[in-house]
Design a protein around this nucleic acid. Structure first.
Lengths: 329, 329
DNA sequence: CTGAAAGCGCTAACAC
DNA sequence: GTGTTAGCGCTTTCAG
């Protein structure tokens, strides 16, 4: 089926293509009668404007590039949902890019993102380096970074302050006299791990104590579970903080298999909440990240940047919420 | 920063834009010396070809549209991963569209998909109607449908035969003398539910029996869990088959809260396996769908269609695999 | 209110 | 080998 162009419509409606263009774009200077003729022609021919050609002519594509870590959909899913919903409202398309570890890949993304001439990019990854960011910034394309607090000329960010969250959590437990607190490394999320660690350090320091409950998982270990199963043979904690749901489950299983009762012997807090946390037994206490909002706000921010409405605040901090379930008391 | 065009590069390298174009596209007729000059200019200016303009000129975009049900990332995640990996290899971009219930939305997707002039579309949803499919087919754009067995002139499909899977499962249990088998409706996946149901019916029929263990969830119930909690007060089964991991967990929780032991009193099989099935306790027996492959194969099929290599088989059936865990014996 | 014409950046014949 | 030129489909001044 031959694609019907604006020209075909013009001929059918007996007007010039300029007029058709006006009708398409809702220009109000067209006489109602002509508009109707054009509308009919469009319908009859089943004409759909070629977004590519529009993109070329307008120098914008109404699509934005989304960059996420590969294979991360379980925890980025909600973010993407939020993003898509807002994108849909504003009529933006999303081009999906995943990023693998290793710098070279980042360059590839920058390459693709630039070539595809998206109007903007939303990036969610710990692994992107400052250089790549600078590169992107050079191209002067609006960027929203999710998860890290950064900003620059054309870069905004939306994040949740976990350092603060953990700070408050630790402070509270310290006040209750619970001092043997451990934080489990999440090798897949360096930055968040650092945030957690720093929050704990600060909380302990403020009470005149020193935090040294950071559990790092040796490189050679294939999974948190395998590691923890051995770890718990000799180690105990009163409270353990982990990053993702899968780590939480791994912790529960490993602890249980070593005779550690949760929450009686050890309490557990998962930082990133997902629906699975409340599906498993015991239900896992967690910080609810407003994932959906994280995506929605990012996209909203993006639209603002694109319309160069003044973006008053380039760094948006969203609030977390602690949901106590069965792994704490 | 002003975008640098092919024209700037041409001027810089002192050649015509045609030559630059040739270099970009790796045409081998360019003299090495000129090529080098052009390459230098490209590097110096930081030139990146405008994919939009290329798209216009070539009448193709090297991007394909992916259509999935909204908020489905937990179970489509792996599919998307497979898809993206193959897409990356072949240099295709992915535009992401989500589809909500309700026909009108489908038209919107068709609209967007056509307007964005993707080279092809990969669709994963139960909800798309035959009409919309026909519409898409009219536009003569290559389509790969994931999950359902359909094909047409420009439509291929990749699926897993669950009807057969359930048929075999039921047959096996019937042989063992277990006849009280139930299948739980998945309101979010009509078609799969039907497949399951049909498989069971066929299995029973082949043994000269009748299947009537279909559990449909009343419309007014907000979740499987809430429904099952009440359901299990009066009902028992020897084997229950559910579609998704979340339903499996709901079933376990609801059953347990009604004093039903799994697998002792009731065995449980989840149709769509995810990593969560092996993280929870008891670990859930499930059919492993080759999700990643589903995505990868689909994308591979798409590339074939796009290069109009003869696609010998328009309907690709992938094999499932039964993974027995702790909810069956 | 509508039409003519000049691009947007690139590719692909077709010349030289 | 390389340059010239005519589109790809649409938007947008600028005239009328």
């Amino acid at each position: 089926m031959k694609r019907v162009t604006i020209y075909d419509v013009a001929k059918e409606a007996n007007v010039s293509l300029a007029t058709v263009s006006r009708v398409i774009n809702g220009s109000d200077v067209v006489k109602l009668q002509t508009k109707q003729r054009v509308d009919e022609a469009i319908k009859k021919l089943g004409y759909k404007p070629n977004a590519i050609a529009q993109g070329l002519a307008l120098q914008k594509t109404t699509t934005i590039g989304l960059v996420i870590p590969e294979a991360s959909f379980t925890y980025t899913g909600m973010i993407i949902n939020g993003l898509l919903d807002v994108a849909k409202i504003y009529g933006y398309n999303i081009i999906l890019h995943t990023i693998t570890e290793g710098i070279s890949d980042v360059d590839m993304i920058v390459d693709v993102v630039i070539k595809s001439r998206v109007d903007g990019a939303i990036i969610y990854t710990d692994k992107i380096t400052e250089e790549s960011m600078a590169m992107l910034n050079d191209y002067n394309i609006p960027i929203v970074v999710i998860g890290n607090r950064v900003s620059a000329q054309s870069i905004c960010s939306v994040y949740v302050d976990f350092e603060k969250a953990i700070y408050e959590l630790c402070s509270e437990y310290l006040d209750k006299g619970i001092e043997d607190i451990a934080i489990l490394e999440d090798r897949k999320n360096e930055n968040s791990t650092n945030d957690l660690h720093n929050g704990a350090i600060r909380a302990f320091k403020d009470k005149g104590k020193e935090f040294n409950g950071f559990i790092s998982i040796p490189k050679e270990e294939r999974s948190s579970y395998r590691f923890l199963k051995k770890y718990f043979v000799e180690h105990r904690h009163q409270l353990i903080v982990v990053n993702r749901d899968s780590q939480a489950m791994a912790t529960i299983n490993a602890a249980r298999e070593n005779g550690i009762l949760i929450p009686e012997d050890m309490q557990l807090v998962c930082v990133i909440d997902t629906k699975y946390n409340s599906m498993v037994r015991p239900q896992i206490s967690a910080f609810t990240i407003p994932s959906y909002d994280l995506g929605a706000v990012s996209m909203r921010l993006m639209t603002k940047m694109l319309q160069s409405e003044g973006v008053e605040d380039k760094e948006k901090c969203l609030n977390y919420l602690f949901t106590a379930r069965e792994t704490t008391y």
